[in-house]
């Protein structure tokens, strides 16, 4: 399980790999928020439950990440804990934890506008799954 950032001129790309689809979703969320802020400083003290539907795993992945951005924005929160509770090809249930942004404690590193579907494809590899996600910054 892990992630790396890709060189994309205008925006940012993340390559994520994991042993299972659940872990791939969790790691993608972790990658997204570690781009936004230093996650070591985000205490997982408030919990939110997420439920989503989608037409396939790709759509669910983008919806999941955009859902996190939505909560980040409207609740002014940062998240550092992501747990997928249930994942099917058309639905996802998850638990996330984080805290309200405080300018004294946290720094916004790269604000993200949205997660895109650009060339998005979850690939099966010998060790599990991998995906490249392009973000609109």
């Amino acid at each position: 399980m892990g992630f790396s950032f890709l060189n994309h001129t205008a925006d940012v790309g993340i390559r994520v790999w994991a042993e299972s689809l659940e872990a791939l979703f969790e790691e993608s969320a972790y990658a997204l928020f570690s781009l936004i802020t230093n996650l070591e400083k985000v205490t997982p003290k408030e919990t939110l439950f997420i439920a989503l539907e989608g037409k396939d795993y790709e759509e669910l992945l983008v919806s999941w990440l955009n859902e996190l951005l939505y909560h980040h924005e409207v609740k002014n929160m940062l998240f550092s804990y992501f747990k997928v509770l249930e994942l099917g090809s058309s639905f996802l249930r998850a638990e996330i934890k984080g805290e309200v942004f405080s300018s004294e404690k946290h720094e916004i590193l790269t604000p993200v506008k949205a997660v895109t579907y650009h060339n998005l494809e979850i690939r099966k590899t010998g060790k599990g799954y991998e995906v490249e996600i392009i973000l609109d910054i």
Binding site: G54, K55, E59, V62, S63, N66, L69, Y70, E73, V74, K113, A114, V115, Y117, D136
Partner: peptide, 15 residues
């Protein structure tokens, strides 16, 4: 965020 959300909502519809 309003524009970002509208774009994301409609990409799903357009898919």
């Amino acid at each position: 965020g309003l524009g970002h959300q509208i774009c994301d909502d409609f990409i799903r519809i357009m898919n």
